[in-house]
Design a protein around this nucleic acid. Structure first.
Length: 307
DNA sequence: AACCAGGTTATGC
DNA sequence: GCATAACATGGT
């Protein structure tokens, strides 16, 4: 029987479309970090090291958040509300970006097709870094498969109404894993080294989101790229997807190159200078533009089969 | 069957 | 400093 699941409301900002966000979270990939339902998403996170399962669904002028599992303290409720607010970037005024898109003939369709799409983030910095390392150099379907194996093997699981949910492994859960432990899951030895090394940095308190948030964007980048396994692309990804730096461009990203080739009709992948030129009118909105360019690589299919 | 995937490091000139 | 190989495997 459904016991008093607390139901919380978050007002929706202007230029916000939950359907676009749900669609992005799904995108035809098999992401084990959440479960997509009809215009709703269910997710397991850790709050103070305890698993909390919640569901976000759409309503006319607000989002409804129900906590399925976890204590009913206001502290937990606020942690979940904060998580959702950051996850979907609910506090941002998207109007300037919308205007910039509409002012560009080639990009204006994005402002219509993706209107209200927010930059969906990965609030947990360790998860963002680990995920981007997993995704280095391999195609996304394989990356999602590797992530699922890692999460299902080492992360915290919770079953609710017969469905299993998984939280991303914490640094502590990965810090003592060995490279050999990850090889059977088809991680390359090097990728396993990177991942375990970064888990240890977090576990030892040498790296944290709070620490990076005290730094300038420039210092964030140099700090991150000094870490083995984190090159420029991974650092920019973390800035964009977790640290919410607005000016991040994932230089060297294959998807970014392809999106620009599609958009501009270029045959060759753009140079760094061409990328900079393209982004120039979008100063302080580079992260959003990058995210929208990635979005443009996935096409909506009209008759999406739904179980 | 090559060649590219939401790259990075190690090595050699 | 810049080019190249190696990495693991899937998709096209």
């Amino acid at each position: 029987m459904a016991i008093s699941t607390s139901s919380l409301l978050i007002p929706k900002p202007k230029l916000f479309d939950f359907g676009e966000i749900v669609w992005f979270l799904d995108r035809g990939y098999d992401d084990c970090m959440h479960r997509i339902e009809e215009n709703a998403v269910v997710k397991l996170i850790a709050v103070e090291e305890k698993p909390v399962l919640f569901r976000v669904s759409d309503a006319t002028d607000h989002l409804t958040v129900e906590i399925y599992h976890g204590d009913s303290s206001t502290q937990t409720q606020e942690a979940v509300l904060d998580y959702v607010t950051e996850w979907f970037d609910l506090k941002l005024d998207l109007q300037p970006f919308d205007s910039l898109l509409k002012a560009d003939k080639a990009l204006a369709p994005m402002a219509i097709h993706y209107q209200g799409l927010r930059l969906v983030s990965i609030p947990d910095l360790f998860e963002a870094l680990a995920w981007s390392i997993i995704g280095q150099q391999i195609n996304l379907s394989f990356a999602f498969r590797l992530k699922r194996r890692l999460v299902e093997t080492f992360g915290t699981a919770l079953t609710y109404e017969g469905i299993s949910y998984h939280a991303f492994p914490t640094p502590a859960q990965l810090a003592n894993v060995s490279v050999a432990d990850l090889l059977p899951y088809q991680f390359s030895a090097r990728k396993a080294e990177y991942l375990i090394g970064i888990a240890n940095l977090f576990a030892e308190g040498k790296l944290s989101k709070a620490l990076l948030q005290t730094m300038s964007t420039e210092t964030m980048l140099t700090t991150l790229t000094q870490i083995r396994g984190i090159g420029e692309w991974t650092a920019q990804y973390a800035l964009m997807k977790s640290l919410r730096v607005p000016t991040s461009i994932p230089y060297g990203d294959a998807g970014l190159h392809n999106a620009l080739k599609n958009l501009k009709g270029w045959q060759e992948k753009p140079t760094r200078e061409q990328v900079n030129q393209f982004f120039k009118p979008f100063a302080s909105w580079e992260s959003y533009l990058s995210f929208y360019l990635w979005r443009s690589l996935s096409q909506k299919v009209s008759n999406r089969e739904k179980g």
